[in-house]
Write a protein that binds this DNA or RNA. Structure first.
Length: 124
DNA sequence: GTTGTGACGACTT
DNA sequence: AAAGTCGCCACAA
């Protein structure tokens, strides 16, 4: 697979570049898609080391909890959040709301929940 | 060499 | 649910 670190970084950059506007992906997920399972930390390094000319949508990468990995109050945190909000990404507290995950849950509930069954956990 | 530090995450308490 | 713990490994000192 990735024989050198440089090659790994390039694969990560390509994956990040493929994240559509308005969506987010976790570091771990990016790593897996790049063929580098368990290398979430490397994704962080890759973004830090990414050449500015690539114009990567780095702001679409958040941690597994759906939260921005820069310290709250930092300029980078504020920039990432504002860029996401500008693309229509919604937040619930500090975590992003992932529409792609919520819809199927609700659909399953509508299609399969027997009448009178305990309510499926509602999205906040 | 060795050690400490992460833009992380999965598991276990 | 929240806090530890451990795995991961590139880099800098």
């Amino acid at each position: 697979m990735a024989r050198t670190t440089q090659e790994a970084l390039e694969r990560i950059w390509r994956v990040v570049a493929s994240i559509p506007p308005g969506e987010v992906e976790s570091y771990g997920s990016v790593a897996r898609r790049a063929g580098l399972p368990r290398r979430a930390r490397l994704v962080g390094h890759a973004l830090k080391a990414a050449p500015e000319e690539l114009r990567l949508p780095w702001h679409r990468v958040v941690n597994a909890a759906g939260r921005i990995s820069f310290p709250e109050g930092s300029a980078a945190h504020a920039l990432q959040r504002s860029r996401l909000e500008a693309e229509g990404v919604q937040f619930r507290g500090a975590a992003v709301v992932r529409a792609a995950r919520r819809a199927p849950e609700d659909l399953d509930a509508l299609l399969w929940a027997p009448p009178g069954a305990p309510a499926v956990r509602r999205a906040r």
